[in-house]
Amino acid sequence: MTATGTQKIRVLLVDDQELVLMGNALTLDSTDDIEVVGKAATGEEAIRRARDLKPDVVLMDVRMPGMGGIEATRIITTVHPTTRVLVLTTFDIDEYAFGGLAAGASAFLLKSTPTDRLREAVRTVHAGEAVVGPRITKQLIDHYASGGTLHDHRGVAEKADPLDHLSPRELDVFACIVSGLSNSEICDTLHLSPATVKTHVNRIFSKLHLRDRVHAVILGHELRGRRRVR
Rank of each mutant, 00 (worst) to 15 (best):
E120Q: 15
A121H: 10
A121I: 13
A121G: 12
A121R: 09
R123C: 09
R123D: 08
T124H: 08
H126Y: 13
H126S: 14
A127S: 12
G128P: 00
G128I: 04
G128R: 01
E129A: 10
E129V: 01
A130P: 03
V131P: 10
P134M: 11
P134G: 08
P134K: 09
R135W: 08
R135D: 13
R135E: 13
K138H: 12
K138R: 14
Q139M: 14
Q139A: 13
Q139N: 14
L140S: 03
L140K: 05
L140E: 03
I141P: 01
I141E: 08
H143P: 04
S146I: 00
H151P: 03
D152F: 08
H153V: 09
H153E: 09
H153P: 07
R154E: 13
G155N: 12
A157F: 08
E158S: 05
K159G: 06
A160W: 08
A160G: 09
D161E: 09
L163G: 06
L163R: 05
H165E: 15
H165K: 15
L166I: 03
L166E: 01
S167R: 06
P168F: 03
P168I: 01
P168Q: 03
E170V: 04
D172A: 14
A175K: 12
A175G: 15
A175R: 14
A175C: 15
C176L: 06
I177G: 02
V178L: 04
S179W: 02
S179G: 15
G180E: 08
L181V: 00
L181A: 05
S182D: 11
N183P: 07
N183S: 07
I186R: 05
C187F: 01
C187I: 03
D188K: 13
D188A: 14
D188M: 11
T189S: 14
H191F: 07
L192Q: 09
S193H: 09
A195Q: 10
T196Y: 00
V197K: 01
V197E: 00
T199D: 10
R203M: 06
R203K: 14
I204D: 01
F205G: 07
F205P: 00
F205D: 06
F205L: 14
S206G: 11
K207F: 04
L208Q: 02
